[in-house]
Design a protein around this nucleic acid. Sequence first.
DNA 1: CCACCGATTGACTGGTCAGTCAACCAACCT
DNA 2: AGGTTGGTTGACTGACCAGTCAATCGGTGG
Lengths: 203, 203
Amino acid sequence: MASTPKAPPIDKRRQILDAAIRVFARQGFHATRVADIADEAGVAYGLVYHYFKSKDEVLNELFSERWSLLLTAIEEADSSGDLSPRAKLEAVAGFIVDSYRHDPELMKVIIVEVTRAANSFGRTHLPEIRSAYDSIAKIVSDGQAQGAFRGDIDPTFASMSFYGAIEQLLSGWIFELIPAGDGDFDEAKSLVVAAICDGLEPR
Amino acid sequence: MASTPKAPPIDKRRQILDAAIRVFARQGFHATRVADIADEAGVAYGLVYHYFKSKDEVLNELFSERWSLLLTAIEEADSSGDLSPRAKLEAVAGFIVDSYRHDPELMKVIIVEVTRAANSFGRTHLPEIRSAYDSIAKIVSDGQAQGAFRGDIDPTFASMSFYGAIEQLLSGWIFELIPAGDGDFDEAKSLVVAAICDGLEPR
DNA sequence: CCACCGATTGACTGGTCAGTCAACCAACCT
DNA sequence: AGGTTGGTTGACTGACCAGTCAATCGGTGG
């Protein structure tokens, strides 16, 4: 046969990554032993080291996989010339919220262990994280240039506030500080953008 | 003498706490060994355990000391009947920003190791953290009742967004993503409130 | 001068785990 | 069958470090 004669029946590497998501989400990165990942994946201890250089690399891989999707999504929203600046922000907020809806465990790991852990893992990924802020700032900046946003708020500032607000909402869901039903997700998307664009005060 | 005849010349306990702030800020909680704290404090290893039950307790103490000040500040802002809701939010934002200006290392530790590490230490302190969100939500809720804020945004929601935005700014300073001069701090105070209250779109 | 007691010291222990490695196995080729 | 390759196994080791504890110090009162 010409096709895939040597591919193993199941992708063990993927299996390990998926298991890691579950275990990291459940116990946190520091509290999980490599043996936990192997057990959860139904695989021998040593195999984890066959596919990954270290425990850290497993987390790095999970983060990078997902974050690159986010960066792409932001770029795409931005480059849709026919979208209003506000609609672009809505697209970004929507993507992040949907990421959480679709795979809460993965997003929990990424936010808790990387994005908000800038001392340990965040350090390594600071450039990638910063890149997201920058892209959002560009959306704001363009919005200002075309008069859709007021000009007296620094774009970087606005970008940090916007992203910070969204991440805080995810944290609220992750730690069950606020209700996380399907309706809440949709509501959240528009409310964050409304809060940031329209403000809390009545118009 | 009637006064303090038995007090040791210097408060070693305080000395250890202050040293811990520096070391935690520099290396992160997980990466610092108890010996590092003792060395930094110029004190023997065992003395740390004379004053604290465990390494965790040192961090807990640092957090609780500071967080109770924050809670008090929010309560005070809220109970000043003569302040507008917006002015109350300004007071809260101002307190947090000034806390960072006054003791960036301590705030770094609190944010990075506790507030944003809800998986490990944040878990323990979730009730205290939540209490801050609730108090801010109350300010928003009262503002809505008196017509100063629009009524269609859930107060908890607004509170999380507001706090999230501020915390993200602190993170930006902590990890040098945004400039942290004296003018930047003052600017930040008003800009966060402006962004949240007035919104990004022109009025 | 001695007895007492809390503060202070730092060597030591027990347990934990990340990462290594030599052996094993299964598929495929010749 | 014999050989080669690469995935797979799990026991083992070496390092690390939180927390313990017995010894020492220094001040106070009898």
